[in-house]
Amino acid sequence: MRGPELRIEHLTATHRRHPAVHHLTARFAPGSLTAIVGPNGAGKTTLLRAVAGLHRPDEGRIAVTHPEGRPCRLALLPQQAGMDRTFPILCRDVVLQGLWSRLGPFRGASAEDRARASAALEAVGLGGFGQRPVADMSAGQFQRLLFARLLVQDADLILLDEPFNAVDARTAADLLAVLKRWHGEGRTVVAVLHDLDLVRAEFPDCLLLAREKVAFGPTAEVLSAANRLKARMMAEAWDEDAAICAGPKAA
């Protein structure tokens, strides 16, 4: 299978009218593996949320199109903050949530679905954890669990927001292997990351974002010293007295 193309045109997404992502145009090729890097507050999370349909853009277009024209499934792995990690639920049931798009609120999971859930747990190194409550999981184990849910979701376009945050080296390596497996299967993968060495080693493409696009393309070229300095110069604070933007309008 081939992943979809993600095309972003003149995208501006704001928080209280201040742009978090400003006039961004970028094209992620089908089956590409791209890292998004940039300073804190550079709009990386907002960009992913806009693509996932969770943040309404003020301007511009986001198009996800499959080369064969069939409908695409999209999955977002958010940062963990919004989740209730003390919720009384078993790991197996969290993984089965990945089947929501097919099972919805009512349909039951078949034996095959359960087997898939077990296989996904196995694949992220949580074999045998199916009957454990989520509250017992460490931060790293919980991240593995969320990757298992992503595996079951079987999405064509996968968006990951700081997937290796607060996990140890071994967990990061295991999860990276899952990510490369997705890439090998031809899915389109976009991940927000802070570890530039990791990005250089493992990600062919890179988008350097500082509210506006600083550079986009092959990782080695994008992460040049000059570009990194440019990104670092981005003012972190909003300009409270900013005038209305007269920048390029969406075509």
Partner: peptide, 18 residues
Amino acid sequence: RPLALETFDPAFARAEGA
């Protein structure tokens, strides 16, 4: 099921159109 999902992970529930 939808209530449990929304309580556990509201962002996921929203992204999946629950």
